[in-house]
C-alpha cells in the first residue's frame, strides 16, 4: 500500500489484463472493464444506481414536504457543525492573501473600514451599534425616514466566510458567528450600508444567512416619504444585478425614483427589526391589468462584496411600541 508500489500494480493491471480480456469479450472491450464477469459487474452497478437514486429521492421528498422543520434539518445542523468551522478555518487561512489582493485591486477605504470594524469588535460580543459607520448611517437613514429611536440594536459582529455558488441558484452565505455568540435563527443581518438578510440556521460558531436578494426572500418595507408599506421580494439574480421588487400594500400609492425604503419590522423584531435601511427605488413599472405598480429597488448593501456583517441579537432598550405590531414579513 505504499505510494511507490501501487501505481506499478495499477499500471500492470491496466496494461496487461484489459488487453487480454478485451480480445475475448466484446462487451468488455467496449466498457473497458479489467476483470470480473460482466453480469456481476452490471448487476452491481444497477443495484448501486437504484439504491442511490432511491435514497436521494427519499431525501428530497422528506425535505421538500417537511420544510422548514423536516427530518433532514438535524442532518443539516450536523453538517453545519462539521463544515462551518472548516469553512471558517479555510477562510481565515487565505484571508491574508485575499485581503492583500483586494487591497491592491479594490478600495483602500473599504479595507480600512473593515479592519477597523473587525478590530473594534475583536471580542465578538462588542456592539456594532457603537461602531461609527453603522451608527452614523443608521442615524442618517432614520432621519430620512422620520422614524425615531432605531438606535438601540445590539449587534454581534461576523465575517462572511463562504458564499453559495451560482449553481445552487440561491443567495446564501456562511458567517463565522453562531449560537455561542448569541446568533439565532431568524435574526436580522445588516452591514454598514443596510439590510443584508436574515439568519436561516445557526450552528455553534457559524450561521447561514439568506440574503434579501434571494428569490425566496420576502421583507416588509416602508417607503420613507409616504410611510406606505409593501413587500420586497428578491429577484434571485446570480450576478451583480441583484434587485428587490417592491409590491405596495396600498395599490393607489405610487413610489417615486429615489425613495428610500426601510424595514417595516416584524413582530418581536424577528426575522426583521424595524427601521433598517434596505435600498432605493430605481424604477417604477405599472402592473399590467390593474392600477397598482411595482418598483425595482436597489439594495444599499452590496451583495457581491459582503464581508463584515452584524447580526441583531436584541435591542438595548426594548420598546413595546415598535411598528412591528401590525404584522411582519417572512
Amino acid at each position: 500500500m505504499s505510494l511507490l508500489r501501487s501505481p506499478s500494480r495499477g499500471a500492470a493491471t491496466s496494461l496487461v489484463r484489459p488487453i487480454k480480456l478485451n480480445r475475448t469479450t466484446r462487451s468488455r472491450a467496449r466498457t473497458g472493464q479489467p476483470l470480473g464477469p460482466d453480469r456481476d459487474q452490471n448487476r452491481h452497478t444497477r443495484t448501486a444506481l437504484a439504491i442511490s437514486v432511491l435514497i436521494a429521492l427519499t431525501l428530497m421528498a422528506v425535505d421538500a414536504t417537511g420544510r422548514p422543520d423536516s427530518a433532514v434539518e438535524p442532518l443539516r445542523i450536523g453538517a453545519a457543525e462539521v463544515f462551518g468551522p472548516l469553512e471558517a478555518g479555510a477562510d481565515a487561512a487565505v484571508r491574508p492573501v485575499t485581503d492583500l489582493a483586494s487591497l491592491l485591486v479594490g478600495s483602500r477605504d473599504l479595507q480600512a473600514d473593515n479592519t477597523r470594524l473587525t478590530d473594534e469588535n475583536a471580542g465578538l460580543r462588542a456592539e456594532l451599534a457603537t461602531g461609527e459607520v453603522d451608527r452614523n448611517r443608521l442615524a442618517e437613514y432614520d432621519a430620512l425616514a422620520g422614524i425615531t429611536d432605531r438606535t438601540g440594536f445590539k449587534l454581534v459582529n461576523a465575517q462572511v466566510v463562504a458564499i453559495g455558488p451560482a449553481q445552487a441558484f440561491r443567495r446564501t452565505v456562511t458567517i463565522n458567528a453562531g449560537t455561542a455568540e448569541g446568533v439565532k435563527t431568524d435574526r436580522t443581518v445588516v452591514n454598514g450600508a443596510g439590510l443584508v438578510g436574515r439568519v436561516l440556521r445557526a450552528g455553534r460558531h457559524t450561521a447561514t444567512v439568506l440574503l434579501v436578494i434571494d428569490a425566496g426572500s420576502v421583507v416588509g418595507g416602508r417607503l420613507d416619504r409616504s410611510m406606505e408599506l409593501g413587500f420586497l421580494r428578491g429577484n434571485g439574480s446570480l450576478g451583480a444585478d441583484g434587485r428587490l421588487v417592491l409590491d405596495l400594500v396600498d395599490p393607489d400609492s405610487v413610489p417615486v425614483n429615489g425613495d428610500t425604503i426601510v424595514t417595516w419590522g416584524s413582530r418581536g423584531g424577528s426575522p426583521y427589526v424595524p427601521g433598517v435601511p434596505v435600498g432605493t427605488v430605481r424604477e417604477v413599472q405599472a402592473k399590467a391589468g390593474d392600477q397598482s405598480v411595482t418598483a425595482t429597488v436597489e439594495p444599499f448593501a452590496d451583495m457581491t462584496s459582503l464581508d463584515v456583517v452584524g447580526v441583531v441579537t436584541g435591542t438595548r432598550q426594548p420598546r413595546g411600541t415598535s411598528g412591528g405590531a401590525v404584522g411582519g414579513a417572512q
Binding site: L49, I55, A56, D63, R67, V72, L75, A80, A162, R170
Partner: peptide, 24 residues
C-alpha cells in the same frame, strides 16, 4: 455533503442525485 454543507439551503438530496448519476 454538498447538499448539506452551509450555506446550502436547497432541498437536500438534489446534489446527491445529480452526483450519483454523474458518477454512474
Amino acid at each position: 455533503a454538498v447538499d448539506l454543507a452551509p450555506p446550502a439551503d436547497g432541498i437536500a438530496g438534489r446534489w446527491a442525485l445529480a452526483l450519483a448519476l454523474a458518477g454512474w
